[in-house]
Design a protein around this nucleic acid. Structure first.
Lengths: 246, 246
DNA sequence: CTCATATAGTTCTATATAGAACTTGTTGAC
DNA sequence: GTCAACAAGTTCTATATAGAACTATATGAG
């Protein structure tokens, strides 16, 4: 699937109801990075003036995006980008035996950054083989919890290889947004089980063939294009995943 | 926590907005089993007449329940109980190598039904130790996939031990609803990995200590009381779990 | 029986309006 | 400087209304 430049604005589908057209328009403006994490979106009144729609319709459009998890409304203040709760969630899956019982985000260390040709399966997901690969290790040095391999399309993340190491915090998604204008809106995790390969075992300090949990994640922007694929692996005994069904 | 009889109607909190009071009222009526899976709830017009509220407010109350996954609206037809998609989801986690690739629900066999005292942890969740225990095996006889142990509070499920075996289909939640007026509205799964105990290994035809995926589930009614706890275990190599984050 | 048409009932979209509830910044009293 | 009061701006609740879109049933023609 070809990647459009973000400048090409998709035309709204006139057959759709007005509130959905407005929803789409707002979503693309969000994806384009028009508003930062702490700047309010236009108010209901401003949007009614801009669009000529009624407040009710504008509210419905915004509410749709809130339900989809993209926006967040604060009464009396405004409408903002929602802070993504799943930033730390990949980590949350591993029970960290911190003494205080807090859900601390342990240190993470990027151990490699290179431009590389993505494997076919990854290239298919990301839409290109021209990629950047990050390798990351998480956990204390005496208790390594997660070995990660992260693939990004080079077109969107050019310059991340040369970026100063101090710019990398424990979480990547804020960096994506601030430095590369890429706003992660949703993700899909695939959890499975596998024996540790020699390489992974060495990294995590496990025996080869030791049981590990594997998490494969694909992350998407608002418009549904995949912009990150990663595979993470950690010791199975420490793994614990909670999921709410409804 | 003491279990109320379903006859005691909780009073609506007057401090709450009207649409939330109506939401709560409808939720308790649903939990009470007032409407079956295929009978429509009262229409918007009927509800406005009953309550004296405006259509907009009534719509908002219903929409809230739709967002919570409890109801389902069909334009031109009516509002209905939502068919629970996670009935089969516990099973979906195991990749079934059926030739056609279909997500078939394999046969399930109840191998034991007894009244029993629940372990402390389970009793705490269910609010009582006076329970019924079901043991179930799923999968073909040549490829057993899941060994389940299910705990139910006896007060709500009295008679399930004596129930004719033919009444048990492959899914339990429809049975809960139709026979015992218990409508499962949400659930929480906890996934982890563990070595197979001697007993589980024997049941599944695995070697003792073989890696298995463990799913612990607590299921809730609309009002948030836990009415089922189960632990399921299956071979780790066959396990695959998909989760959507947003 | 089969098919098209009408009809009543339902949800869905959209507008207009009013005031309540809440947040944020400013102004003024002390 | 500190605190209270005010004011402007925002989202939230609630009502009222109109017509469109869709579904299910009944009716009638052939």
């Amino acid at each position: 699937m070809p990647q459009h430049d973000s400048a090409s604005a998709p035309l709204p589908d006139r057959r759709l109801p007005a509130y959905l057209q407005l929803r789409d328009a707002l979503a693309t403006r969000v994806a384009r990075g028009e508003w930062g994490p702490d700047t309010a979106l236009p108010s209901e009144n401003q949007l009614t003036a801009e669009t000529g729609l009624s407040v009710g319709t504008v509210r419905k459009a915004i509410q749709t995006l809130v339900d989809e998890g993209l926006l967040e409304r604060r009464q009396g203040s405004g409408t903002y980008l929602r802070k993504r709760a799943f930033n730390a969630s990949l980590f949350r899956f591993f029970a960290v035996q911190s003494a205080d019982g807090e859900a601390t985000i342990p240190s993470s260390r990027i151990i490699a950054r290179t431009a590389a040709i993505a494997p076919a399966a990854v290239a298919k997901i990301l839409g290109t083989a021209d990629c950047i690969r990050l390798d990351r290790l998480r956990g204390q040095s005496d208790a390594l919890l997660l070995s990660e391999e992260i693939w990004l399309p080079r077109a969107r993340f050019d310059g991340i290889v040369e970026l100063d190491e101090s710019q990398f915090g424990p979480l990547l998604y804020p960096l994506y947004h601030e430095r590369f204008n890429v706003f992660i809106a949703s993700a899909v995790d695939d959890v499975s089980f596998a024996a540790a390969s020699a390489k992974v075992a060495a990294r995590l300090g496990l025996a080869e063939g030791a049981p590990t949990a594997v998490i494969e994640r694909t992350a998407f922007t608002v418009d549904g294009t995949a912009v990150e694929w990663r595979i993470a692996q950690g010791p199975a005994e420490r793994f614990r995943y909670r999921s709410r069904l409804s």
